[in-house]
């Protein structure tokens, strides 16, 4: 089977790779692209540990074929921090002990970021339903939800200050 050549953009950088027709996007990220921050917990779209965004849309990369990335803009956990400056979500997860083992953390952060881009002022319930596709077995979600709500508040404040 001939490999497929894919040209795409990942975390703002142009990328090329070769993949098998049945490789998932997660296979490509973790394999040839060396972006192992996205994790495989189930390979069936149930755990969300492989969450990425494609043209700002949140997807499970295990449910997307690697070849489908052609011409699209992908974002992964590796692109979340701005150099040494953490995204407010990353900072709040650290400060509030919103991770234990850390295997779900990449997916949680990518999914939370996607939420706040759509809805900068979510209620607790909205956070809980948005993150219902991201399994965490360690934390009971309490500190994750609090961290997302706090990060959202801080980001809103920063936006207000910037506007003034």
């Amino acid at each position: 089977m001939a490999k497929i050549h894919v040209t795409t953009t990942i975390n703002g950088e142009p990328m090329e790779y070769l993949c098998e027709p049945d490789d998932t996007m997660l296979d490509a990220l973790r394999g040839p692209l060396g972006l192992t921050g996205s994790k495989e917990g189930c390979a069936s779209g149930d755990c969300g540990a492989c969450s990425i965004t494609v043209d700002d849309r949140l997807v499970c990369s295990c449910l997307m074929l690697a070849a489908e990335a052609e011409g699209h803009e992908l974002r992964t956990i590796e692109g979340m921090a701005d150099g040494e400056r953490l995204h407010p979500l990353q900072q709040k997860f650290l400060e509030q002990a919103a991770l234990q083992c850390g295997i779900c953390t990449s997916g949680m952060l990518v999914a939370s970021d996607a939420l706040l881009r759509k809805n900068p002022d979510p209620s607790e319930e909205e956070v809980r339903f948005w993150l219902a596709g991201n399994l965490c077995r360690c934390t009971g979600y309490d500190k994750i939800v609090r961290a997302v709500l706090d990060a959202a508040a801080e980001m809103r404040e920063a936006t207000r200050e910037a506007a003034q």
Partner: peptide
């Protein structure tokens, strides 16, 4: 180990 885990 936090920094490594929030940055992938």
């Amino acid at each position: 180990d936090g920094m490594d885990k929030v940055t992938g």
